[in-house]
């Protein structure tokens, strides 16, 4: 078997006495579209935070193409090819849509501080290349006519889209989406469903998706990992998951708090 693009081995995260994630192992191939589901507080976001280096796992390993990422800086992990969006959108609110995208290209810019200050030829070349790339991406997401708007002034659905676009602008191999449909209306969610599949096909990347909207998850994901109270309780394709008694129990047990979306 070829090495998985992303793999976690027995990831565990403890916050003091609380075990937020316990012994979580998963694998995904180059262009897999995989879901992570579970009730509120199950530990899903914590898994993302460990993969991206925001938290250092208490135990276990994260591997990108077989190479361990544990202990690396967040920025370096991104540069190596893992990009993410956040559950509570974290755009650069007071910057323009264009600048949000440009920032994702920062680590690929090849001019130095002096060239920046003196605005040399190289500076102009690199900047116009960056801008072109950014506009190309914004066109894909139909945001190019809002290029000069401040991110905070976009409607909610477009902010979510911009965050995905910004993550893609880092040129990732693996894209982590943390509840991209949260707060979207059914129309927007339907668009998003198509968009996620399309992004995978177009960019040929692996996507790991946390989502509470079951319709979306069941429709786009090829495989699903289910976590509850930090434990992996099930793993399989959508129909297996839907009929798994453990999953049904975890969700029914949590149903009263969570409600249907």
């Amino acid at each position: 078997m070829t090495t998985p693009i992303l793999e976690t081995q027995a990831l565990t995260m403890r916050f003091g006495g609380l075990v937020a994630v316990n012994n979580f192992s998963m694998q995904m191939g180059d262009t897999d579209l995989v879901g992570v589901i579970g009730p509120n507080g199950a530990g899903k976001t914590t898994i993302f935070n460990m993969i991206t280096g925001i938290y250092e796992p208490t135990e276990g390993d994260v591997r990108l193409s077989g190479k361990s990422l544990v202990g690396e800086q967040v920025a370096l992990i991104t540069q190596k090819g893992i990009a993410r969006t956040f559950q509570n959108i974290r755009l650069f609110k007071d910057l323009t849509v264009l600048d949000n995208i440009r920032l994702a290209g920062h680590s690929r810019m090849k001019y130095g501080l002096i060239a920046n200050i003196l605005r040399t030829k190289k500076f102009h070349e690199e900047e116009s290349r960056l801008k072109e790339e950014a506009i190309k991406l914004l066109k894909i997401f139909k945001l190019e006519n809002k290029m000069d708007h401040l991110a905070k002034n976009l409607p909610y659905g477009e902010q979510r889209k911009l965050e995905i676009a910004r993550a893609l602008a880092t040129k990732p191999k693996v894209l982590l989406l943390d509840e991209p449909a949260a707060g979207m209306n059914p129309n927007e969610t339907a668009d998003l469903t198509k968009l996620i599949k399309w992004v995978r096909d177009e960019f040929q990347i692996a996507i790991l998706l946390i989502e509470h909207d079951m319709r979306l998850v069941m429709e786009v994901c090829e495989r699903i990992y289910v976590v509850d109270h930090g434990e992996l309780i099930a793993h399989g394709n959508p129909s297996e998951i839907q009929n798994n008694p453990k999953v049904i129990e975890a969700y029914l047990g949590a149903q009263s708090e969570e409600g249907e979306q």
Partner: peptide, 25 residues
């Protein structure tokens, strides 16, 4: 001039959201 280049933008991004900036590489 600094602010109109990638180094200046990186500096601004820290003010805007440090975790997001880290996550952008």
């Amino acid at each position: 001039n600094l602010l109109r280049g990638t180094h200046g933008r990186a500096i601004i991004s820290i003010r805007e959201d440090e975790i997001a900036a880290d996550s952008m590489g």
